[in-house]
Every structure is written in C-alpha cells, then in structure tokens.
Design a protein around this nucleic acid. Structure first.
Lengths: 348, 348
DNA sequence: ATCCTATTTGTTAGCGATAACAAGCAAGCA
DNA sequence: TGCTTGCTTGTTATCGCTAACAAATAGGAT
C-alpha cells in the first residue's frame, strides 16, 4: 500500500483522478475515458484502471468535470410541497422520463411561496442545471427574469399561464374546477359551497376557486359561498373545521367542494364524527384524486389529474429541449395540455 | 449596451464573473468578494458591482467556486420515499436546522431499495456533499464502503444500527413496536396480529415485525400471526386487502397492528365498508402518527415518533461535524436516541 | 514629514476534470 | 518495404472561480 507517489496519496485527502492515473500507469485523460462508457479504450487498460479505482476508493468529482465539459447532468424541479402525492407523482413521472439519459433530478420545495421559489430558482441556477421545471405560472418579477435569462429550457407545469416563460405542461385548474361544479349540478345539487385557503398564496387553489365561481355564475347559481380557511396547503384538520363553519353559516348547503382531497377528507371525517350523513346531509367533493379519496368510506368524488403524465411529458420535453440546445437548434415553445376528469364516487 | 470587451459579452453565452468585473472596472476577485457578505469591500465599489450584475443578469457559478474553495455548500440526504409525511417531517427538520448555515439540502429517494440507495450514494458523492444522511442502517456492502471512505460526516437515521458507520440519530423500531403490543396487551387484547410487507426490503418494517414477535413471545402469547402483503411501502388499499385476509385466516383475531398508519387506515376503511365494528369486532393500530390517523373516524391508535426531531438533531449534528472537519478536529461519534410514544386513540 | 495601521484592491496559481488535437502503434494492403 | 487506416493514449489549454499573498491607498499618530 505504500505508494505515496502524489501528495494526495500521502495525506488523508480524497484521491483524485491523478492518483488513479499514477497507480494505473496512465494519464488522467485515459482514466477519464475509462469512466465513461462508449469511449475507445483497451479492455486491459480499463480493467487496470478499474482496479486502481477500487483500491483507492476513488469517486469521480463531477463538479470539476462539469466545469470543463459544461454538462452538469442534472435538471432542477421546484414543487410546492414534499408531502403531497400529486406532486410526488409528477416528480416520479419526471424521474421516469429521465431514466437512462444520465440526467439527475434535483428537487426543491417552495412551500407554496413565490418568495421561496425565487430564492430556490437562484440557488438552483447557481449550480447550473441543464433545464428547470417550476410548478405553476405565478412568479416574482425577479424570478421570472432569472428564468428568462437562464439560457436553459424552462417548463412551467400544473397550470396554463397566460404569459408563459417558455414551455408549458399543464391544465386549467379553473376549468377542472368548473367541470366539477357542473357535475354536481347535473347530479341535482344547487347550493354548492367552496372550501379553500385564505390567501392567494397557492395560485392553483385560487384558480380552482375562480373556476368554481365562474361555473356558479354560468349556471345561474348566484348564491356561491366560499369558506376560506388557513394558509395553503390547508390540512385535513382545517377541512374539518371549515365544514363546521360552513354548516353554521349556510345550513341549507347541499354540497361542498374542497380545494383538495386532503381537506375534503378532513371535512368528511368531521361529518362522520358528528353524525352528518354524507352525502345525505351534505355532499363533499375534493380535488386531485389522492389515494385517500378512493380508499376512505364513503369514497370521495374528486377530479383526477394525470399527475404522473405532467412529469413524464415534462421530462420528455426536457430531453428534447436539452438536446436541441446542445446542437444549437432550440426547440420551439411547446404547450402540452394534460387531461383531467371528474371521478364520481360515494360522497356526492 | 455595446461594450463587447470580452468574448462572453459578444456571443450569447452566459456572462461570467470576468464580464461583471470588466463592466464594473474591477478585478474578478473584487466581484467575488462583493458577492459574499462579510468581506471587506468599499460600499461604493459593491454598489457598482451590484449594478453590473443586474445589468448583465449574472448568476454566480457555484460549481466553479466550489472547485476552488472546496466548499460545495450542500448536504445530501437519502430518504425512502418522497411521499411519506414521516420522512417529509424529517426533511423539514433537517432543512430547519440548516437554515442560516448557507448549506442547502439535496434530497434523494431510494424507493426503499438498498440497490437504489447505493446508486444514489455514489451519484451524490460525485457532487461532493459536505455531509451525507441516510435512512436506516441497512446498506449494500459497496454503499457502506463508499460512506466509510467518503471522508465526510455520515449520519444514519431512523434506526439504531448494530454497527453504525459513524453518527446515528434514531430509535429502535423494534422496541417501539413492542411497546405498542404491550399497550394493546394492557388494554386486554390477547389475539394480536401483525400486518406488514412481504419482503425485508423495508428494514424498519422488518424491525417492527421483529419487535412485535419479540413482545408476543415475552408476553407468553404464542399465537402470533403475521400477514404479509405486497412490497413495501404497502398502500392503503393493500392494508384493506390484508385485513380481509387476516379475518379469514384468523377469525378470532382481536387486534391488528399495521406496519404503518397508511395501511392501518386502509384496513380501518375496509372494516367500515363491511360493517365490522372497530374496535368492537377488531381493533386496529398503526405506526407513525400520520396526520390521517388523528383525523379519521375512528381515530387510529399509533406510535408517534418525533420525526421532525430526527431531522433537526441530525442537522445540528451535521453543522457541528462539518465545522469540526474544517478546523481539522473531527467530532466524536454521536448516538442520539429519539423518543417515541404510544398514542391511544379510538381504534383500539 | 515619516512611519504605522487598517482598509481595500489586485495578482498569481491552482481546484479536478475534460475538449481538442497530436501522436504512437499495430494491422492491412499494395 | 512503405503507406494508409483505425484504434488507443498522451499533451496542452482551458472551464469559472477563490485562496493566499502582495500591493496600493488613506488616515492617524508621532
């Protein structure tokens, strides 16, 4: 073990490619090639290098490589919450689409805040991702500028922004929400309320609310009632509190649409606890088709969005776009619309 | 706008620090200093540089900086699943502990697979994190070696491994599970079953099962029954299927402990759907104290683990350890045990 | 005026890898 | 034998930034 040919070998510092090269009796360039597959290198040499790598416990320093090759091999994606199966599905779709491309996904969590998003965008950009994915179309002015100037493919997801930055893979939350209202209307419900968060922090939540109000107006139901409760994302517990408030404020209410399945579930359980029949006393609907909505009893009527597909489509678009940048032929702006559907279940 | 003093300015490539320096009429070193706070620099110069940065839309290239400064400013954390509120809480604890340190958290998802973990460890290490956090104490041989040789602080969480790699912040899943069995025993239950995943892929799940079996033996309850269902993480739906299977196989069963709250919830809902009283016909307990367990009706008895604290303690330990490495005074191995408690609710 | 100190700025030399090109070498062919 | 071809390996020059040291400048004390 007493080689000590380089300084790194002598002290305890991590071995570099130079150490591997010295041990294997080749140049660093050859080591670099051995580490990539597809490079032309003699099998015997490669084996010798692999042995040296194992002996030293060498791990490639990708950041050094990136500096030289201009390829960081990762894409950044910002999602509002780490603990939301909808976004988790999107992330999975993204990951799946990226498999085999050598691109790694770096997730960031904005916590439903555009300010946090701005910070994250900047710190991601500092690491020079090859593309960046954001959730929604609402950004701070500076964030928008950062994205526009980043010089990499940008995708906005989960929304159909009026003024897209570049590519879009999403759907209209307002339309989806309207569709749900119309579904309830067709079922015979007239006194329909909406339960959501207090602020507009969650722009998708705000869109759903707008869609609800638009549909109510369109259907000639002037008595729209909105219960606002807590800052997004509103929790199961808050959903429970909201339904109580709703029943007090509007005892006649026939159906409640919740901004997400989580709050719908909370509302449903609170009803059960109080002995209010669902849908007998009041019907409850959610949004997002979370696992919980299909499992709970009664199962919750909701809007199913193809979350995985949002991620997968985004991923494939990214691959094309990155390739396009590389060969200096940027792909044209794309606007992919994702499907959604009302899923009628037992709660309405 | 027609400056064109450097090549970068001329073509469309992203501006570098040199471009900023030229525009502001200073050296790159001064720009570098202006970007850090705490560096000694004249207010006027700093303002001029900031203006140049704004004009060019410059964003620091951190990977280049890291190469030079040997500080990548991020720590890696691997968790089994993106969509599990327990691990999400741990991640939040980690993030919170890291706030203000300038360290960013990079999350990776192992999908409960040690092979995937190994891959992730390697790809994380390639980016030279300043510390790495893994979930659990079970790793492939190579993963273990990689961690041991990484030369950075390593923390294993959510477990108390027999042969820790370095630091540990966790608890005994087996003991926690035993405590739950003993609680049910004290409530008068004797015929207690366990519902978990089929494989040992989820080592924490396996530990919980082992704890169940140990407690049953200790209590003199020889008739332990284990229902294995699906590969971890088992879903709500699988929890529902498992309880049916359990009731068929062992009609006398009085209580079922599920490997996690999610499966417990699925089991509970299935019982409601079939009109089996819980806890009248069968009692159900979970693990993890997810939001759902406290909200649903009846609320589920579970074991609450201080998940946030696992993350927070890990984060603070990391900060100390990283600082220790920097001043060449590595901190001693630490073994932090996190508390848990049985939370009795309506379902037992 | 001279020296000292503190503050601000610049210079030089890498960090660890890879791109681009150059060169060595063996095999194949005339 | 001499030349070409194709494969394998090496050399050189960065990539964009920061550490470490050097130098310039201003202000104050003597």
């Amino acid at each position: 073990m007493a080689r000590g040919s380089t300084k790194n070998q002598q002290n305890g510092a991590a071995p570099t490619m130079q150490d591997v090269a010295t041990l294997a009796g080749v140049s660093t360039m050859t080591v670099s090639r051995a580490l990539r597959d597809g490079a032309s290198i003699a099998a015997e040499t490669r084996a010798r290098i692999k042995a040296a790598i194992d002996e030293l416990g060498y791990v490639l320093d990708q950041s050094a490589g990136s500096l030289s090759s201009k390829r960081t091999a990762f894409v950044a994606a910002l999602i509002p919450s780490i603990n939301n199966s909808n976004f988790a599905d999107t992330a999975r779709g993204l990951t799946d689409a990226l498999v085999g491309s050598g691109l790694q996904l770096l997730l960031g969590y904005t916590d439903y805040s555009v300010e946090k998003e701005e910070q994250l965008i900047e710190s991601m950009l500092r690491r020079r991702p090859e593309a960046i994915v954001v959730t929604g179309g609402g950004h701070t002015l500076r964030a928008r500028k950062l994205l526009e100037n980043a010089g990499i493919p940008v995708v906005e997801t989960w929304d159909l922004p009026k003024k897209p930055i570049q590519h879009v893979v999403g759907f209209s939350n307002a339309d989806a929400s309207s569709a749900l209202v119309k579904h309830l209307f067709a079922q015979g419900y007239r006194k329909i309320a909406f339960i959501g968060g207090t602020t507009n922090r969650d722009t998708r939540g705000a869109d759903r609310r707008a869609g609800y109000e638009a549909a109510m107006a369109e259907l000639g139901l002037s008595n729209s009632h909105v219960i606002s409760f807590g800052t997004p994302p509103i929790t199961m517990k808050q959903g429970g509190e909201a339904i109580i408030q709703l029943m007090e404020q509007w005892p006649d209410v026939e159906a409640a649409i919740c901004v997400s399945d989580l709050s719908a579930f909370g509302a449903l359980m609170e009803c059960q606890r109080r002995g209010w029949q669902v849908p007998g006393r009041v019907a409850i609907a959610g949004f997002g088709d979370f696992e919980i909505s299909g499992t709970c009893y009664p199962a919750i009527t909701t809007v199913g969005v193809n979350c995985f597909d949002i991620g997968f489509q985004t991923g494939s678009l990214l691959l094309r776009a990155i390739e396009g940048e590389r060969i200096n032929k940027p792909v044209a702006r794309e606007n992919t619309v994702i499907t959604y559907q009302v899923i009628p279940r037992e709660s309405t």
